[in-house]
């Protein structure tokens, strides 16, 4: 699983802002006021670039006011392989994000309809999937199955977390089995692919939704661009592995800009309410 973490880390956008702070838009390279970007749902007012979002900001933006109830936040990671630099990585990520791990789960209402929700946070070790991420998402599906709730999942990930060795790989199977069980009971699962969704997350629950949406220009792929370029011995076009590229090749249902996201999700959820 190619981990593109080191390459994209520099582009992460911090969302805690003061009004005078500015940020360079990765889309059009102009300098933007952070507050303005924030108020515009973290979308560049000039070019429409969708900035990366923290899980909490995303939840606030997508769910009905005060409807979110967090679940499974009592789980945290252990460096059980004593893997080089993993402990420090976890501590730094926790300090910088205020989160215990790379995914926030719970229940909420979207457009008045109750659902289970998981939102991955790319600021936390590029939301790579280790035991805790896998366990929390699995529990979310099991909870939703028991309560007969739809699941809405926002994916972002560098892939499986190699610092947890093969156990992180097994999370792909663990979550997938829970998705299957939830699905067999005729429950709805909507995935929203956000920038960047790669590796083992693409090769498992990101691609298992009944309906797969994506944010504009989100990077979505299995192998990293550099690895693919090395394999085929040529440069790849800029739009390779973009949400638009996936749409063209038939792997996402629709690209939904952030301004339309709540409306789209609400409508889809409403269409699947069981009578």
């Amino acid at each position: 699983m190619d981990n593109i973490l080191h390459k994209v880390k520099k582009k992460i956008d911090d969302v805690t802002v003061s009004p005078e702070e500015t940020v360079e838009c990765p889309g059009c390279k102009t300098t933007q006021q952070k507050l303005k970007v924030l108020k515009n749902n973290m979308v560049c007012p000039d070019c429409g670039h969708h900035f990366r979002m923290s899980a909490r900001t995303r939840i606030e933006f997508i769910t009905d006011k005060n409807s979110f109830k967090e679940l499974f936040d009592n789980l945290s990671s252990i460096d059980f392989l004593e893997f080089p630099k993993y402990k420090e990585k976890l501590e730094t990520a926790q300090k910088n994000t205020g989160e215990k791990e790379a995914v926030v789960c719970g229940t909420a209402r979207i457009g008045g309809i109750k659902c289970a929700l998981f939102v991955m946070d790319p600021r936390f070790i590029m939301a790579s999937m280790g035991s805790v991420v896998g366990e929390k998402i699995t529990r979310t599906f099991e909870y939703a199955e028991k309560k007969r709730l739809p699941v809405v999942g926002f994916t972002a990930s560098g892939g499986a977390r190699m610092q947890e060795g093969v156990t992180s790989l097994m999370q792909m199977a663990k979550v997938s089995a829970a998705v299957k069980k939830h699905s067999k009971d005729c429950n709805l699962y909507i995935t929203v692919l956000t920038d960047p969704t790669t590796g083992g997350v693409t090769a498992s629950f990101a691609m298992q939704g009944d309906i797969i949406l994506a944010e504009p220009k989100a990077l979505v792929g299995f192998a990293g661009r550099r690895v693919v370029e090395q394999t085929i011995g040529k440069k790849l076009p800029d739009d390779f592995q973009s949400a638009e590229f996936l749409l063209k090749h038939g792997f996402v249902d629709a690209i939904v800009p952030r301004s339309e996201m709540v409306k789209t999700l609400s409508t889809l959820l409403k269409m699947h309410v069981k009578g």
Partner: peptide, 20 residues
């Protein structure tokens, strides 16, 4: 396989579907 055409034809989706 990490080729461009494998990505175009949904390498991630194919693996995801098999596992599920």
């Amino acid at each position: 396989y990490c080729g461009d055409e494998a990505e175009e034809r949904g390498q991630g989706q194919a693996i995801a579907e098999n596992i599920m």
